[in-house]
Amino acid sequence: MMQTLKFPNKEVCVSIICPINCIFPIRLSNSTDSENQAGTVEFLLLGLSEDPDLQPVLFGLFLFTYLVTVLGNLLIILAIICDSHLHTPMYFFLSNLSFTDIYFISTTVPKMLVNIQRQSKSISYTGCLTQVCFGAGFAGLENFLLAAMAYDRYVAICHPLRYTVIMNPRLCVLLILLSLTISIMYALLQSLMLLRLSFCTNLEIPHFFCELVQVIKLACSDTLFNNILVYVMTSLLGGLPLWGIIFSYVKIVSSVLKMPSSGIKSKAFFTCGSHLSVVSLFYGTGFGVYISSAVTDLSRKSAIASVMYSVVPPMLNPFIYSLRNRDMKEALKKLIQMSSL
Protein backbone atom coordinates (compact mmCIF):
# COMPACT_ATOMS: atom_id res chain seq x y z
CA MET A 1 0.00 0.00 0.00
CA MET A 2 1.24 3.53 -0.82
CA GLN A 3 1.17 6.05 2.01
CA THR A 4 1.82 9.74 1.40
CA LEU A 5 3.33 11.57 4.38
CA LYS A 6 3.16 15.36 4.15
CA PHE A 7 5.67 17.65 5.83
CA PRO A 8 5.93 21.45 5.66
CA ASN A 9 8.52 21.54 2.85
CA LYS A 10 8.53 18.10 1.33
CA GLU A 11 6.48 15.01 0.68
CA VAL A 12 7.72 11.50 1.44
CA CYS A 13 6.10 8.40 -0.03
CA VAL A 14 6.34 5.14 1.86
CA SER A 15 5.50 1.92 0.06
CA ILE A 16 4.00 -0.89 2.12
CA ILE A 17 3.08 -4.27 0.71
CA CYS A 18 -0.67 -4.85 0.91
CA PRO A 19 -2.04 -8.41 0.80
CA ILE A 20 -4.68 -7.45 -1.75
CA ASN A 21 -2.28 -5.29 -3.81
CA CYS A 22 -4.25 -2.14 -3.08
CA ILE A 23 -3.06 1.46 -3.26
CA PHE A 24 -4.70 3.81 -0.82
CA PRO A 25 -3.36 7.34 -0.16
CA ILE A 26 -3.17 8.24 3.52
CA ARG A 27 -2.44 11.86 4.33
CA LEU A 28 -0.89 13.11 7.55
CA SER A 29 -2.48 16.52 8.03
CA ASN A 30 -0.59 19.79 7.90
CA SER A 31 -1.49 22.74 10.13
CA THR A 32 -4.63 23.61 8.18
CA ASP A 33 -5.95 20.05 8.41
CA SER A 34 -5.11 19.94 12.11
CA GLU A 35 -7.29 22.99 12.62
CA ASN A 36 -10.09 21.28 10.75
CA GLN A 37 -9.80 18.15 12.88
CA ALA A 38 -9.71 20.23 16.06
CA GLY A 39 -12.84 22.07 15.01
CA THR A 40 -11.27 25.55 15.22
CA VAL A 41 -12.13 26.48 11.64
CA GLU A 42 -15.40 28.36 11.33
CA PHE A 43 -17.74 28.77 8.39
CA LEU A 44 -19.94 31.78 7.73
CA LEU A 45 -23.60 31.18 6.87
CA LEU A 46 -24.60 34.18 4.75
CA GLY A 47 -28.28 33.32 5.05
CA LEU A 48 -31.06 34.71 2.89
CA SER A 49 -30.28 38.40 3.28
CA GLU A 50 -27.65 40.64 4.83
CA ASP A 51 -30.08 43.55 5.21
CA PRO A 52 -30.30 44.28 8.98
CA ASP A 53 -33.88 45.53 8.60
CA LEU A 54 -34.97 42.14 7.28
CA GLN A 55 -33.40 40.11 10.08
CA PRO A 56 -36.33 40.49 12.56
CA VAL A 57 -38.77 39.58 9.77
CA LEU A 58 -36.77 36.48 8.88
CA PHE A 59 -36.48 35.52 12.55
CA GLY A 60 -40.24 35.76 13.09
CA LEU A 61 -41.07 33.97 9.85
CA PHE A 62 -38.73 31.04 10.45
CA LEU A 63 -39.64 30.76 14.13
CA PHE A 64 -43.31 30.56 13.16
CA THR A 65 -42.54 28.00 10.44
CA TYR A 66 -40.48 25.89 12.83
CA LEU A 67 -43.13 25.88 15.57
CA VAL A 68 -45.92 25.05 13.11
CA THR A 69 -43.85 22.19 11.67
CA VAL A 70 -42.98 20.66 15.02
CA LEU A 71 -46.45 21.04 16.54
CA GLY A 72 -48.24 19.88 13.39
CA ASN A 73 -46.16 16.74 13.04
CA LEU A 74 -46.42 16.01 16.77
CA LEU A 75 -50.21 16.19 16.49
CA ILE A 76 -50.11 13.70 13.63
CA ILE A 77 -47.98 11.32 15.70
CA LEU A 78 -50.16 11.64 18.81
CA ALA A 79 -53.36 11.17 16.83
CA ILE A 80 -52.01 7.96 15.30
CA ILE A 81 -50.84 6.65 18.67
CA CYS A 82 -54.11 7.43 20.48
CA ASP A 83 -56.53 6.15 17.83
CA SER A 84 -56.51 2.37 17.47
CA HIS A 85 -58.25 2.64 14.08
CA LEU A 86 -55.06 4.22 12.72
CA HIS A 87 -52.80 1.36 13.77
CA THR A 88 -52.30 0.28 10.17
CA PRO A 89 -49.21 0.17 7.91
CA MET A 90 -50.23 3.37 6.12
CA TYR A 91 -50.30 5.43 9.31
CA PHE A 92 -47.29 3.62 10.74
CA PHE A 93 -45.24 4.96 7.82
CA LEU A 94 -46.91 8.37 8.18
CA SER A 95 -45.89 8.63 11.84
CA ASN A 96 -42.29 7.83 10.89
CA LEU A 97 -42.46 10.45 8.14
CA SER A 98 -43.61 13.00 10.73
CA PHE A 99 -40.71 12.10 13.01
CA THR A 100 -38.33 12.54 10.08
CA ASP A 101 -39.80 15.94 9.20
CA ILE A 102 -39.32 17.16 12.77
CA TYR A 103 -35.69 16.07 12.88
CA PHE A 104 -35.04 17.31 9.33
CA ILE A 105 -36.12 20.88 10.01
CA SER A 106 -34.50 20.84 13.47
CA THR A 107 -31.13 20.24 11.80
CA THR A 108 -31.10 23.60 10.06
CA VAL A 109 -33.60 26.20 11.29
CA PRO A 110 -32.65 26.46 15.02
CA LYS A 111 -29.05 27.37 14.14
CA MET A 112 -30.32 30.05 11.78
CA LEU A 113 -32.56 31.49 14.51
CA VAL A 114 -29.66 31.53 17.00
CA ASN A 115 -27.40 33.32 14.50
CA ILE A 116 -30.03 35.96 13.76
CA GLN A 117 -30.63 36.51 17.48
CA ARG A 118 -26.92 36.83 18.20
CA GLN A 119 -26.28 38.83 15.01
CA SER A 120 -23.69 36.26 14.03
CA LYS A 121 -23.08 34.21 10.88
CA SER A 122 -20.53 31.73 12.18
CA ILE A 123 -20.86 27.99 12.59
CA SER A 124 -18.06 25.77 13.84
CA TYR A 125 -16.38 23.12 11.70
CA THR A 126 -17.92 20.41 13.86
CA GLY A 127 -21.34 22.04 13.74
CA CYS A 128 -21.18 22.32 9.97
CA LEU A 129 -20.25 18.66 9.56
CA THR A 130 -23.08 17.74 11.92
CA GLN A 131 -25.58 19.65 9.78
CA VAL A 132 -24.28 17.96 6.64
CA CYS A 133 -24.48 14.50 8.24
CA PHE A 134 -27.98 14.83 9.69
CA GLY A 135 -29.34 16.76 6.72
CA ALA A 136 -28.17 14.13 4.23
CA GLY A 137 -29.40 11.31 6.46
CA PHE A 138 -32.90 12.66 7.01
CA ALA A 139 -33.30 13.66 3.35
CA GLY A 140 -32.39 10.12 2.35
CA LEU A 141 -34.73 8.64 4.95
CA GLU A 142 -37.63 10.74 3.66
CA ASN A 143 -36.99 9.38 0.16
CA PHE A 144 -37.28 5.79 1.34
CA LEU A 145 -40.32 6.44 3.52
CA LEU A 146 -42.21 7.96 0.60
CA ALA A 147 -41.30 4.91 -1.48
CA ALA A 148 -42.50 2.56 1.29
CA MET A 149 -45.79 4.45 1.51
CA ALA A 150 -46.24 4.16 -2.26
CA TYR A 151 -45.66 0.40 -2.03
CA ASP A 152 -48.25 0.22 0.75
CA ARG A 153 -50.82 1.96 -1.45
CA TYR A 154 -49.93 -0.34 -4.35
CA VAL A 155 -50.58 -3.47 -2.27
CA ALA A 156 -53.80 -2.02 -0.80
CA ILE A 157 -55.30 -1.22 -4.22
CA CYS A 158 -53.83 -3.89 -6.49
CA HIS A 159 -53.88 -6.80 -3.99
CA PRO A 160 -56.58 -5.92 -1.43
CA LEU A 161 -57.33 -9.52 -0.43
CA ARG A 162 -53.67 -10.20 0.40
CA TYR A 163 -53.01 -6.80 1.98
CA THR A 164 -52.89 -7.92 5.61
CA VAL A 165 -50.70 -10.88 4.69
CA ILE A 166 -48.19 -8.91 2.62
CA MET A 167 -48.06 -5.73 4.74
CA ASN A 168 -47.56 -7.54 8.03
CA PRO A 169 -45.91 -5.80 11.03
CA ARG A 170 -42.63 -7.62 10.43
CA LEU A 171 -42.32 -6.28 6.86
CA CYS A 172 -43.24 -2.75 7.96
CA VAL A 173 -40.58 -2.69 10.66
CA LEU A 174 -38.06 -4.24 8.27
CA LEU A 175 -38.71 -1.52 5.69
CA ILE A 176 -38.19 1.19 8.32
CA LEU A 177 -34.98 -0.39 9.63
CA LEU A 178 -33.62 -0.89 6.11
CA SER A 179 -34.40 2.71 5.19
CA LEU A 180 -32.80 3.98 8.39
CA THR A 181 -29.68 1.84 7.93
CA ILE A 182 -29.09 2.95 4.34
CA SER A 183 -29.66 6.60 5.26
CA ILE A 184 -27.22 6.45 8.19
CA MET A 185 -24.57 4.76 6.06
CA TYR A 186 -25.00 7.40 3.36
CA ALA A 187 -24.76 10.27 5.85
CA LEU A 188 -21.67 8.81 7.54
CA LEU A 189 -19.99 8.17 4.19
CA GLN A 190 -20.50 11.75 3.05
CA SER A 191 -19.27 13.07 6.41
CA LEU A 192 -16.14 10.90 6.36
CA MET A 193 -15.36 12.07 2.83
CA LEU A 194 -15.63 15.69 4.01
CA LEU A 195 -13.08 15.00 6.75
CA ARG A 196 -10.40 14.34 4.15
CA LEU A 197 -10.78 17.84 2.69
CA SER A 198 -8.77 20.91 3.66
CA PHE A 199 -10.36 24.32 4.08
CA CYS A 200 -8.20 27.41 3.82
CA THR A 201 -9.86 30.81 3.43
CA ASN A 202 -13.08 32.41 2.19
CA LEU A 203 -15.28 29.99 4.11
CA GLU A 204 -18.57 31.70 3.22
CA ILE A 205 -21.59 29.49 2.55
CA PRO A 206 -24.33 31.33 0.60
CA HIS A 207 -27.08 29.45 2.46
CA PHE A 208 -28.71 29.45 5.86
CA PHE A 209 -27.30 25.99 6.62
CA CYS A 210 -24.32 23.84 5.63
CA GLU A 211 -25.39 22.21 2.40
CA LEU A 212 -23.15 19.37 1.26
CA VAL A 213 -22.40 20.68 -2.23
CA GLN A 214 -21.69 24.19 -0.98
CA VAL A 215 -19.26 22.93 1.67
CA ILE A 216 -17.37 20.86 -0.91
CA LYS A 217 -17.01 23.97 -3.12
CA LEU A 218 -15.11 25.73 -0.31
CA ALA A 219 -12.38 23.08 -0.05
CA CYS A 220 -8.90 24.03 -1.23
CA SER A 221 -7.90 20.40 -1.77
CA ASP A 222 -8.91 18.00 -4.53
CA THR A 223 -12.69 17.45 -4.49
CA LEU A 224 -13.11 15.27 -7.59
CA PHE A 225 -13.88 12.11 -5.65
CA ASN A 226 -16.28 13.97 -3.35
CA ASN A 227 -18.22 15.40 -6.29
CA ILE A 228 -18.40 12.00 -8.01
CA LEU A 229 -19.63 10.42 -4.76
CA VAL A 230 -22.29 13.10 -4.30
CA TYR A 231 -23.74 12.69 -7.78
CA VAL A 232 -23.57 8.90 -7.77
CA MET A 233 -25.10 8.47 -4.31
CA THR A 234 -27.72 11.17 -4.91
CA SER A 235 -28.75 9.49 -8.17
CA LEU A 236 -29.01 6.10 -6.46
CA LEU A 237 -30.68 7.13 -3.20
CA GLY A 238 -32.93 9.66 -4.87
CA GLY A 239 -33.55 7.91 -8.16
CA LEU A 240 -34.31 4.39 -6.96
CA PRO A 241 -37.08 5.41 -4.50
CA LEU A 242 -38.53 7.76 -7.12
CA TRP A 243 -38.65 5.01 -9.73
CA GLY A 244 -40.25 2.76 -7.12
CA ILE A 245 -42.93 5.39 -6.52
CA ILE A 246 -43.53 5.85 -10.25
CA PHE A 247 -43.75 2.09 -10.80
CA SER A 248 -46.22 1.72 -7.90
CA TYR A 249 -48.51 4.43 -9.25
CA VAL A 250 -48.36 3.10 -12.80
CA LYS A 251 -49.64 -0.21 -11.45
CA ILE A 252 -52.23 1.58 -9.29
CA VAL A 253 -53.60 3.61 -12.21
CA SER A 254 -53.70 0.50 -14.39
CA SER A 255 -55.67 -1.42 -11.74
CA VAL A 256 -58.04 1.45 -10.98
CA LEU A 257 -58.93 1.94 -14.64
CA LYS A 258 -60.01 -1.69 -14.81
CA MET A 259 -62.48 -1.26 -11.94
CA PRO A 260 -66.12 -1.31 -13.09
CA SER A 261 -67.56 1.21 -10.63
CA SER A 262 -66.78 4.92 -10.85
CA GLY A 263 -67.34 5.23 -7.10
CA ILE A 264 -64.66 2.67 -6.37
CA LYS A 265 -62.32 4.43 -8.79
CA SER A 266 -62.76 7.81 -7.09
CA LYS A 267 -62.30 6.25 -3.65
CA ALA A 268 -59.08 4.52 -4.74
CA PHE A 269 -57.65 7.74 -6.19
CA PHE A 270 -58.73 9.67 -3.10
CA THR A 271 -56.74 7.36 -0.81
CA CYS A 272 -53.62 8.15 -2.85
CA GLY A 273 -54.24 11.89 -3.08
CA SER A 274 -52.44 12.92 0.10
CA HIS A 275 -49.38 10.81 -0.64
CA LEU A 276 -49.19 12.07 -4.23
CA SER A 277 -49.36 15.66 -2.97
CA VAL A 278 -46.49 15.06 -0.51
CA VAL A 279 -44.41 13.28 -3.16
CA SER A 280 -44.97 16.10 -5.66
CA LEU A 281 -44.03 18.71 -3.07
CA PHE A 282 -40.90 16.90 -1.89
CA TYR A 283 -39.46 15.94 -5.28
CA GLY A 284 -40.68 19.09 -6.99
CA THR A 285 -38.88 21.40 -4.58
CA GLY A 286 -35.85 19.06 -4.52
CA PHE A 287 -35.48 19.11 -8.29
CA GLY A 288 -36.02 22.85 -8.20
CA VAL A 289 -32.97 23.28 -5.97
CA TYR A 290 -30.66 21.34 -8.25
CA ILE A 291 -32.03 22.86 -11.44
CA SER A 292 -31.66 26.39 -10.05
CA SER A 293 -28.11 25.59 -8.90
CA ALA A 294 -27.20 24.30 -12.36
CA VAL A 295 -28.87 27.09 -14.35
CA THR A 296 -27.93 30.12 -12.26
CA ASP A 297 -24.89 31.09 -10.22
CA LEU A 298 -26.83 33.54 -8.05
CA SER A 299 -26.27 32.36 -4.49
CA ARG A 300 -29.37 34.07 -3.07
CA LYS A 301 -31.71 32.35 -5.49
CA SER A 302 -30.09 29.02 -4.66
CA ALA A 303 -30.56 29.70 -0.94
CA ILE A 304 -34.25 30.50 -1.43
CA ALA A 305 -34.64 27.29 -3.42
CA SER A 306 -33.08 25.39 -0.52
CA VAL A 307 -35.71 26.86 1.80
CA MET A 308 -38.41 25.47 -0.48
CA TYR A 309 -36.79 22.04 -0.23
CA SER A 310 -35.81 21.78 3.44
CA VAL A 311 -38.44 23.90 5.23
CA VAL A 312 -41.67 24.02 3.22
CA PRO A 313 -42.40 20.26 2.76
CA PRO A 314 -42.03 19.38 6.49
CA MET A 315 -44.34 22.26 7.37
CA LEU A 316 -47.05 21.42 4.81
CA ASN A 317 -47.09 17.63 5.18
CA PRO A 318 -49.28 17.62 8.33
CA PHE A 319 -51.81 19.94 6.68
CA ILE A 320 -51.94 17.81 3.53
CA TYR A 321 -52.64 14.62 5.46
CA SER A 322 -55.03 16.15 7.99
CA LEU A 323 -57.11 18.13 5.47
CA ARG A 324 -57.37 15.42 2.81
CA ASN A 325 -57.78 12.39 5.06
CA ARG A 326 -61.13 11.73 6.74
CA ASP A 327 -59.74 9.23 9.26
CA MET A 328 -57.02 11.67 10.28
CA LYS A 329 -59.58 14.44 10.77
CA GLU A 330 -61.61 12.23 13.10
CA ALA A 331 -58.51 11.20 15.03
CA LEU A 332 -57.44 14.82 15.48
CA LYS A 333 -60.93 15.77 16.70
CA LYS A 334 -60.81 12.97 19.30
CA LEU A 335 -57.33 14.07 20.39
CA ILE A 336 -58.47 17.67 20.84
CA GLN A 337 -61.53 16.54 22.80
CA MET A 338 -59.37 14.37 25.06
CA SER A 339 -56.97 17.23 25.71
CA SER A 340 -59.81 19.63 26.54
CA LEU A 341 -61.26 17.39 29.25
Rank of each mutant, 00 (worst) to 15 (best):
P56I: 02
I81Q: 04
S339H: 03
E211S: 11
L276Q: 15
N226I: 12
V114E: 12
S179K: 04
I123W: 12
F269M: 13
F62C: 08
S322R: 02
N317S: 15
L75T: 08
Q214M: 10
I102F: 00
N115I: 02
S262A: 15
S248Y: 07
I81D: 06
I157C: 15
S179A: 05
S191G: 01
V165F: 12
V132E: 02
D222H: 10
L332H: 06
L146P: 03
T65A: 08
S235E: 12
F269Y: 14
F319E: 02
I77M: 13
S98I: 07
L229P: 03
E330S: 15
N115R: 04
G39H: 01
L323P: 01
I102Y: 03
R162S: 14
F225C: 02
S98P: 11
V12Q: 06
L141Y: 13
T108N: 10
T223S: 13
D53P: 14
G239F: 07
M90Y: 06
V109G: 00
P206S: 05
C22L: 11
V173I: 08
M259W: 01
T65L: 14
G60P: 00
N227Y: 09
I81K: 07
L175W: 01
R162Q: 15
V232M: 05
K217T: 13
E142Y: 11
N96T: 04
I17P: 07
T107Q: 03
Y154F: 08
S261G: 01
K10P: 05
K329Y: 07
S248N: 02
S292R: 12
D327E: 14
T107K: 08
L94S: 07
S34I: 15
G244W: 06
I80E: 10
K265C: 09
L45P: 05
S122R: 15
S280Q: 10
L188C: 03
R326G: 08
T223W: 08
G72H: 04
M112T: 13
E211T: 07
E211L: 10
L323W: 11
M1H: 02
H275A: 03
F247W: 14
P25W: 13
L63V: 04
V311E: 12
P56M: 11
L229N: 11
T285Q: 04
D101Y: 13
Y125N: 00
Y163D: 09
V215Y: 08
V213S: 10
